[in-house]
Design a binder for these strands. Structure first.
Lengths: 196, 196
DNA sequence: GTAATAATAGTACGAACGTTCGTTTTATCG
DNA sequence: CGATAAAACGAACGTTCGTACTATTATTAC
C-alpha cells in the first residue's frame, strides 16, 4: 500500500520530467515505463487508461504549482509586493529542475485546447482558477491603495499571464538569456501603469 | 507536373486544417491521406519523410502568414496605424477559416520547443524574424514621432507578441467571447504607454 | 500512337501504440 | 507459519505508425 504510493509518485515525477521536454501527448506508456524501470503492464495498472494517467499527471503538476507558486505567495504582504513575489515564483516555476521543459500546464493547454475530454476540462478549470487568483491579488493591491481604484483587475490578470507566456516563449523556444530580466521588466511596467 | 503542384497544395491545406485542430505532431500520414482522399504511399511520395512533410507544412503556413499579416500591413501608413493594422490582422489570422485551431506557428512552437531538428530550427528562425519585424514597426513609429524616442523597441515587440499569445489562450482554450476586445484593449494600452 | 516519364496505388515491413490476460512476486495480517 | 490481497510481470492482442518496395495508371514528348 505504501509501496504503491511511492511508485506512483515516482511514476508521476518521471512523467512530469519527460513530458515537459518531449510534450504531453508524446509521453508514451512504454517509454515512461522504461524510464521508471518497470514493466508497461505494471505501470499501466496504476491508471487503467492513458487518459486517466494524463489527468493524474496534470493533477500532480497542479499540486506542485500550488506548493511552488500559490502558497508561498500568500506569505508576502498583500499588494505590489505579493504581485512581485508571484512573478518571481512563476519564473522559477517555469525553470524548475523537475520540469526542464517549462510549465507543463501551459504546454498541455496548447496541446489540448481543441481536443475535448477530461484533460482539457481540467486545464480549463485550472487556468480559469489561476486567472481569477491573479485578479484577486490585483484587487487586494487596489484595497491596499497601491493600485488605482478603477483598475480593471481582470484585464490586469490577463496582462500578467501574458507576460509569463512570453517568458516561456523566450526561455524555452528562443533560449534567450534575457528572458527573465525582460519578463521582470514587463512586470514592473505593468505594476507602474496600474498605480493610482 | 501541374497536377503534382495542385495535389501538393491540397495536401498542405488539408494538413494545416487538421493539424491546427488536433495538434501538429498528432497529424499522421495515414489520417491525412484519408482526409485528402488518396493513398498513404501516394501522399508520402510528395515528401519522402514525415520530417520533411512537417517542415513543408510549416513553410506553407508561413507563406500564408506573410500573405495575411505581413504584406497587407505594409500598405498601412507607418507608425501607430500600422501597429494597429498588424494587431487586427493577427487576430483575424488566429481565427482563420483554413486554420480553425488558431495559429499553428504558435502551437507548433510549443510542441517543438524542446525537440531539436529542422522543424524547431525553422520555427526559431521564423519567430525571431517576426519579433524583429514588430520591433522594426515600432522603431518606424518612433521615427514618425508617434512613439517616444527612448522606447525599447525590442521590449515593445515582446509585449506585442505576448498580447497575441494571450489572445490565443483566451480564444482557443477558454473560448472567451471577450478575447478579441480584450486583446485590442491591451494593444491600445501598449500603444498609449509607448507614446512620447 | 507509342515510348518515356511522372504521379498515384498497392502491398509489406518492423516497431510501437494502448490494452488485456494469466501468472508470479511481494507485502500484510491473523 | 500460512492465507489473502496487492503489485509487478511477460506475453500477446489488434491497430497504427513511418517507410520501402513494386505495380499501375496518367500525362507528356516525339
Amino acid at each position: 500500500m505504501n509501496r504503491k504510493l511511492n511508485t506512483r509518485e515516482t511514476i508521476l515525477n518521471e512523467a512530469i520530467f519527460i513530458a515537459s521536454k518531449t510534450g504531453f501527448e508524446a509521453l508514451t506508456i512504454g517509454k515512461l515505463s522504461k524510464s521508471v524501470g518497470m514493466s508497461k503492464s505494471g505501470l499501466f495498472a496504476h491508471f487503467n487508461s492513458k487518459e486517466q494517467m494524463q489527468v493524474d499527471i496534470l493533477k500532480a503538476v497542479e499540486k506542485k504549482f500550488n506548493d511552488v507558486v500559490i502558497t508561498p505567495s500568500l506569505e508576502a504582504p498583500r499588494g505590489e509586493a505579493r504581485i512581485r513575489v508571484l512573478a518571481q515564483n512563476l519564473i522559477k516555476w517555469d525553470d524548475s529542475g523537475f520540469m526542464p521543459g517549462g510549465c507543463m500546464l501551459h504546454t498541455a493547454s496548447i496541446e489540448f485546447e481543441d481536443r475535448p475530454g477530461p484533460q482539457r476540462d481540467f486545464l480549463v478549470f485550472h487556468q480559469r482558477y489561476w486567472i481569477d487568483f491573479i485578479a484577486k491579488a490585483a484587487s487586494l493591491a487596489v484595497e491596499e491603495g497601491h493600485f488605482s481604484d478603477d483598475l480593471d483587475t481582470q484585464l490586469f490578470a490577463f496582462e500578467f499571464h501574458a507576460i509569463l507566456q512570453s517568458h516561456h516563449f523566450s526561455a524555452h523556444l528562443l533560449n534567450d538569456p534575457q528572458a527573465e530580466s525582460r519578463a521582470m521588466k514587463m512586470v514592473e511596467n505593468l505594476i507602474m501603469h496600474s498605480r493610482k
